[in-house]
Each structure stands twice: as structure tokens, then as C-alpha cells.
Design a protein around this nucleic acid. Structure first.
Length: 391
RNA sequence: GGUGGGAUAUCCAAGUGGCUAAAGGAAGCAGACUGUAAAUCUGUCGGGUUUCACCCUUCAAGCGUUCGAAUCGCUUUCCCACCA
């Protein structure tokens, strides 16, 4: 595969493909920019898609710039939004900044990555300069953008500041003199603004590469923290494995394609396997990427033990009945409530009613069932909650 | 500045004096079926207790009218549109 093919693989859109071909074959080290806003403390697999792409450039010897939008975050990117983003405090942003970089380095090579933040230049920008920047775009151009025009049409507010966001992002490209900028599909507009601004500034227009948005674990919406359908870099091995196993078969194919960068041929091969096995392999590989091969295999074993053989996992929390309730014989509902593993006591009653609670494999629906854990009892509540009761 | 509209539980959204812890979706959770997939069906879905019952808190906030308020009145806060 040529570098060009490699770079374009999996991409959603490439604007300036010819220029890209030229740049790649020039032998020059290209400046490749990826901007992330530290809005949340965690990176998730959605970010992985685009980080993978940046890594490819890095592996080809180009200069990867991870631009942290600490300044732009105070505005809030309107992309793909149906409402304005809430403002983040400076301290919050600062905190997220640190964890972002640390997590991004789970994918990128820290030695070869340039990290910078756009506060470096925006904090000292004068208002006059800002006005000059704002002059370069018209309201009509801004409204071309889908999310803006939808919001405008639906009477949802659009703040003037939100119009500024793409301009700032574009300005970043001028400062960095970016050859290429990467982003998710929803970033297309912002990235194109960068091209326009660079052109006005007499620079070469950056090549814009957008990556598809990864669908979340629900298989419906894009992966996003706010939808709660994400898998985070910082999730435990168990969480990563479990979450991957719960995705749908179609979603699994996407994950193979965008997270493990499998080609269509490779995916066709994978499809011959039983989807269950195929998914276990996916989960193991993704798990290994963040927690190492050993942990990943351990999770696979645990998974098979619990869900295929209906066994109980090795590592489950233990509670002493005596410590929980002050006596060594107590009513089941009270004991469970005292573990703190359940939302409320009502919740426990509901689970009992619905036959979701098993003691040593035996279904119990009586809330006042006397628990006397003279020998340890294993409690299972629903599919996922396990605990052991001791005297 | 003027006029009109709005704020309901995780989200969307009904509800204009008692039968409302609040219709209907969606998400979630549980059960059946399975491959912890999808689809489907069923149940559940504010909290507490001595749980087939009782009690407490909730419909932006505060005050008021009333035997009784998410529903009526006043004040406040926030939001939106239209006209300037």
C-alpha cells in the first residue's frame, strides 16, 4: 500500500487529495494537526479513530501536532450540537488538559508528538485582531452549515460566540502552518474554514481529512460521553471487554474497520467466523491495546466463565454480614442495601420481585429471607452484579 | 423598547382545581428467548418504611387563594419568537 492509499483508507472525506499526493511524495516532513477540546476528562474510542490516523502520519515520519483547544473550549464547539455547550471553568479545563495528553499518549508516540494549546496565542490576541479575523466570514457563510441552519430554523438559540469558533480553529492552522488537519466528520466545516483563512493569509491551504464518526455501544448514536454510549481509554479491562461484547454485529464490523484498521478483505475473512467468536477477538484486541495482552486474555477467560459457563467470576467483592448489619443473621433486602451496590432499597425490592436475585444460584424473591452466612454465600443480582457474603 | 409564547421526572412530551408520583414515547433496569448481538414479548422505571399497605419529596423559585394546586393569582429568575 502506498502512503497515500494508507492515509486515505477509512477516511470519510479528503479535501485536497491532489495536494496531499504531492505533499506526501515531496519527501518533506508534513505538519499534521489534530485539535481536541478538553471538554471532558476522558478520551473514548471515538477519539481513537482520528488518533489512529494521526499515528499513521507519525509512523510515516511526519510531525504530529496535538493541539489542545484550551482556549476554544471556553467558547464551546457548536459542531453537531443542537444547543449551546455549557461553559467550563478554567480549572476544569486545566485538569482535563493533563489527562487528555496522558491518554492520547496511549496511542501516539510521546517522543514524536508536539503538544501545544491554543491559549498560547489567543490569550494575547487583541480585540482588534479578533475583529479582523471575524471580518473574513459572512453570516450567510456560517449559516451554510447544517447545525447552524437547523438550529436557526428550529428557533434554537445560536450565540454569536459560536460563530467565532470555526474562525478560531482556522486561525490555529495559520499559526501552526498546518499541511494537513484531521478531524471527525462533524468537523468538516471548521476544517474548511481553516483552508479559507490560510488562503487569505497567503499560506498553502491545508489538506482536510475527516474520519467517520464511530457509532456508540448502543449501535445508534455516535459515540459520545453525553449519550453514555462510550468506551473510554481509562475504562478498566473488564469494562472495555464487557462493553465491546455488548455491541451489535454491525457495530462490531465498524469497530474492526476504524479501531483496528482492518481492510475490507480482512473483514470479509472475519465474517466467516461465528460472530460471537469474532467479537471476543475484537474485545481481546482492544482490551490488550490499553491494558496489555495478559489482562485482555484474563478478561476473556472471565467472560467465558461467567457468561458462557454461567459460572461466577474470580474476583468479586466480599461483604461481612456482621459488619453490614451488626448481626450475623439478617434480612436479605437489608443486607443488600447495606452493600451500597444498589441504587436504593426500592430497586432491590424490584429486583427481588422480578426474580433477578440468586443466592448460590437459587432464585430468591423473599425480601425478608434470613441471611445467615455461616458459610459464604454468593449473590448474583441481574447479569452483572456479583458479591459474596461472609459471616 | 413593544407584543406574544414557554420552563413538567434521565431525555422528548401530555396534563388547565380533586380519581396525579403525574398519560404516551425513548433510554435504562429485570425476566423469557439468545451469542451479555439484533428482533420480539412481559414487567419495571422519585425516595423511605414493619412493601399486596402506609408515609415523604417532586411539575423553574418564592408567596398567596382553596377543604384540596403541576393546574388559579401575584412576584422573581431563566429561555424563545415576532415587531422595532
Amino acid at each position: 500500500m502506498t502512503p497515500l492509499e494508507q492515509i486515505c483508507q477509512g477516511a470519510d472525506t479528503v479535501v485536497g487529495r491532489d495536494a496531499l499526493a504531492e505533499k506526501l511524495s515531496s519527501g518533506r516532513q508534513l505538519t499534521v494537526k489534530l485539535g481536541v477540546d478538553p471538554t471532558r476528562p476522558d478520551l473514548h474510542f471515538g477519539h481513537l479513530v482520528v488518533l489512529n490516523k494521526l499515528k499513521q502520519f507519525q509512523d510515516l515520519g511526519h510531525k504530529a501536532i496535538l493541539l489542545i483547544g484550551d482556549y476554544t473550549t471556553t467558547i464551546g464547539d457548536p459542531s453537531g450540537r443542537s444547543a449551546e455547550r455549557p461553559m467550563l471553568s478554567k480549572a476544569q479545563i486545566e485538569e482535563n488538559y493533563g489527562t487528555y495528553v496522558e491518554q492520547a499518549f496511549k496511542v501516539l508516540d510521546p517522543q514524536k508528538t508536539v503538544v501545544c494549546r491554543n491559549g498560547e496565542w489567543f490569550e494575547n490576541m487583541s480585540f482588534a485582531d479578533a475583529i479582523l479575523l471575524a471580518r473574513q466570514m459572512t453570516v450567510a457563510q456560517m449559516l451554510e452549515r447544517d447545525d447552524f441552519s437547523n438550529r436557526y430554523g428550529n428557533n434554537t438559540p445560536i450565540s454569536i460566540v459560536e460563530f467565532l469558533y470555526p474562525l478560531l480553529q482556522g486561525y490555529d492552522s495559520i499559526v501552526l502552518n498546518a499541511d494537513v488537519e484531521l478531524g471527525g466528520r462533524d468537523q468538516l466545516f471548521n476544517l474548511l474554514v481553516g483552508r479559507a483563512l490560510q488562503k487569505n493569509a497567503g499560506q498553502d491551504e491545508q489538506v482536510v481529512i475527516t474520519m467517520p464518526l464511530l457509532v456508540g455501544t448502543d449501535g445508534a448514536k455516535k459515540m459520545s460521553k453525553s449519550y453514555g454510549n462510550y468506551i473510554a481509554f481509562n475504562d478498566s479491562a473488564k469494562e472495555i471487554f464487557g462493553k465491546v461484547m455488548s455491541i451489535s454485529d454491525e457495530t462490531m464490523v465498524e469497530y474492526y474497520r476504524f479501531l483496528l484498521l482492518q481492510s475490507d478483505d480482512e473483514i470479509a475473512q472475519l465474517r466467516k467466523m461465528h460472530p460471537m467468536e469474532c467479537k471476543k477477538q475484537l474485545a481481546t484486541k482492544l482490551c490488550a491495546r490499553f491494558h496489555g495482552q495478559r489482562a485482555a486474555e484474563h478478561e476473556r477467560e472471565q467472560f467465558e466463565k461467567v457468561f458462557s459457563k454461567n459460572d461466577i467470576p474470580d474476583d468479586i467483592p466480599s461483604f461481612s454480614v456482621r459488619q453490614l448489619t451488626g448481626s450475623n443473621g439478617a434480612q436479605l433486602a437489608n443486607v443488600l442495601a447495606a452493600t451500597g451496590l444498589f441504587q436504593s432499597k426500592r430497586e432491590i425490592y424490584r429486583l427481588l420481585e422480578q426474580g433477578a436475585i440468586k443466592l448460590d444460584g437459587e432464585k430468591i424473591s423473599d425480601a425478608s429471607h434470613a441471611v445467615n452466612a455461616s458459610t459464604p454465600i454468593v449473590v448474583q443480582a441481574g447479569k452483572r452484579i456479583f458479591l459474596r457474603l461472609l459471616e
